[in-house]
Write a protein that binds this DNA or RNA. Structure first.
Length: 573
RNA sequence: GAUUCCGUAGCUCAGCCGGUAGAGCAUAACACUUUUAAUGUUGGGGUCCUGGGUUCGAGUCCCAGCGGGAUCACCA
């Protein structure tokens, strides 16, 4: 990593200046109207050639093949790439050939944005191309893009693949790796499809607070912040469930929200500190109704993103068309371990965990113990979409008690490819029951369960006014998108995944060095020598610096006068 | 958090037993009017992540740190 500009960056800055010297603005202000896209030309030119006699298109130069007085280049717009054919005597009609010989051949680079006008034709080798009549620079690029080469079979040669660089400089990743762009186009399709489906049912998209005084609705550690005017702590939401239910109390009969949630916990390939969830609440429905709604919704999502209901995820082919298998939590444990835990008390469950080599500690109540067995022995087996239903009441403080089964609640989670992607309840609307459940959570918290839910008095007050029977559903959008795009890490479906900060090299301004008596033309030289701050200079050996200056002068072939030794010594006083 | 691997040119990567730092692409110069991983000839480009140690000598060996990947653990 060099500290200053690389050779290529310096050359591009010089080209920028030369363009200005020629009277060409490298960053023009005015609109450049386009009337076609690369994709449009490729798809429709063959059957409607007359419509492409006068096209205007803009994009980034991605490749150039210069062959004397004619050249080929590819530009890339939002839809893809298209080849340009540029003839010197076509873009320079008169005697002055500067635009071709100097501007195009020497001063333009890969990565620059240009706009062109011309007509579409097919080359001798069968490539649909644009014969360029006019060319205009729209924006000069000063940093060289990685050049990724592909052959006819789609083999990638010098791929831009380092995950760190790809995530930190996602703009470069998306520019040079078109398949990454497709992931995000599908992500948007997932959300659009769900939104259209909900809207078509008359449910309303809403927004609820991100900054909350009580972080409720889920079990997780929050991010804490502070409001200056009110001088009080606030939390970034870990869930929006309790606010959406307040809206059902208020009389809306179907509300949903796509939104960011924030959880101050570990980061790995399925967890990012901020992630997107979709929660929906529909009045007068129960969790059985919700299951068929989820089946219908996910089938539409699979069709929209993959064109079919079967989606390849890793080595598994997942069928998203319903109906999905339904299994109660206890039955699923019986199916995969042979053990019936349904009638066990806390001690028996603890013993069962131990016999299965599952770690336990004494903060764990019945709910957590059952969940531990399920997570360890069942989850990974649930490849095809499977509803796991009827959870122990201790695990689920916001769901309604089961209509027939004692000790259970009306809840399901949807598992696909061994991962949970949705969670739904017949929502608890009995305010007295809800208060007791919160109190049970407080007891768990007192035992040391730092994920137990906090009491929310205003939410209880809302329930006391009355909430209709309601079913609610939450879906982790990032994980759903991972499935639909066959990605194994959450970073690949987030434009800007959270990263540790980049290390910044500390560097004092050139003026600081000049003030110290160092001639301006020598400042880049001592910076190149690794002396980046006045402190570095202070720590350096004056004799060595003087000697190295001579060495650098020779090495960099500088035509500048060597300072006298006394002058150099003065820098250190 | 644990284990492990990685960090060398703008990008992708070689670099053996410790002895003057390499390739392809990109870039610069010349040639070339249908190329498409264009081609041919020639040239330039390096804080080998940072800091210590061993050594006559470290990209290479040792220690520490920083950043990243993978696996595991944690995680509604």
């Amino acid at each position: 990593m060099s500290i200053g500009l690389s050779e290529q960056e310096i050359i591009r800055r010089e080209s920028l200046q030369e363009l200005r010297n020629l009277g060409i603005d490298p960053y023009p202000a005015e609109t450049f109207n386009v009337n076609v896209t690369a994709e449009d030309i490729k798809q429709n030119y063959e059957r409607d050639k007359l419509s492409y006699k006068d096209v205007r298109i803009a994009g980034r130069i991605m490749t150039r093949r210069i062959m004397g007085s004619a050249s080929f280049a590819e530009i890339q717009d939002a839809t893809g790439r298209i080849q340009l054919y540029i003839m010197r005597d076509e873009i320079c009609k008169g005697e002055d050939k500067t635009l071709y010989n100097t501007v195009f051949k020497k001063l333009l680079d890969i990565g620059d944005f240009i706009g062109i006008q011309g007509y579409v034709f097919t080359t001798k080798t069968g490539e649909i191309s644009i014969h360029v009549n006019e060319m205009k620079i729209l924006s000069k690029s000063l940093k060289p893009l990685p050049v990724v080469k592909r052959d006819e079979e789609g083999n990638v040669f010098d791929g831009f693949t380092d995950p760190e660089l790809r995530y930190r400089q996602r703009y470069v990743d998306l520019t040079v790796n078109p398949e990454i762009r497709d992931i995000f186009i599908k992500r948007t399709k997932v959300i659009q499809t769900m939104r259209n489906y909900f809207d078509s049912n008359g449910w309303m998209e809403v927004e609820t607070p991100v900054l909350q005084q009580v972080h409720g609705g889920a079990a997780a550690r929050p991010f804490k912040t502070h409001h200056n005017t009110l001088d009080m702590p606030l939390f970034l939401r870990i869930a929006n469930e309790l606010y959406l239910k307040r809206l059902i109390v208020a009389g809306f009969e179907g509300v949903y929200e796509f939104g960011k949630m924030f959880r101050n916990e570990g980061m790995d390939r399925t967890h990012n500190p901020e992630f997107t969830s979709m929660e929906i609440y529909v009045a007068y429905k129960d969790y059985i109704w919700m299951m068929q709604m989820v089946e219908e919704c996910l089938e539409k999502v699979a069709l929209a993103t993959n064109g079919k209901t079967k989606v390849q995820v890793g080595t598994n082919e997942i069928e998203f068309a319903g109906p999905y298998e339904k299994l109660s939590m206890f039955d699923s444990i019986k199916k995969y371990t042979g053990i019936d835990v349904s009638k066990m008390n806390e001690q028996e469950l603890t013993d069962t965990c131990k016999s299965l080599n599952i770690e336990v500690d004494d903060t764990m109540g019945k709910g957590k113990l059952v969940d531990a067995i399920f997570g360890d022995r069942v989850e990974a087996n649930l490849i095809q979409p499977t509803f796991i239903t009827d959870y122990p009441i201790e695990m689920t403080p916001l769901a309604k008690k089961h209509r027939t089964e004692e000790g259970l609640v009306e809840r399901f989670e949807l598992f696909v490819n061994g991962k949970e992607i949705a969670n739904a309840y017949s929502e608890l609307n009995d305010p007295i029951d809800q208060r007791e459940r919160f109190e049970d959570q407080l007891k768990l918290a007192a035992r040391g369960d730092d994920e137990a839910m906090a009491m929310d008095d205003d939410f209880l007050r809302a329930l006391e006014y009355g909430m209709p029977p309601t079913s609610g559903l939450g879906i982790g959008i990032d994980r759903l998108v991972m499935m639909m795009t066959n990605q194994s890490t959450i970073q690949e479906v987030l434009f800007f995944p959270q990263m540790r900060p980049e290390k910044k090299v500390k560097m004092d301004a050139s003026e600081d060095f000049i003030e110290k008596g160092i001639p301006a033309e020598w400042v880049p030289v001592i910076q190149k020598m690794g002396i980046l701050t006045l402190e570095d200079l202070k720590a350096a050996n004056p004799n060595k610096v003087f000697n190295d200056l001579g060495g650098m002068r020779k090495k960099m072939k500088l035509e500048i006068a060597m300072p006298a030794k006394e002058q150099v010594m003065a820098w250190f006083e």
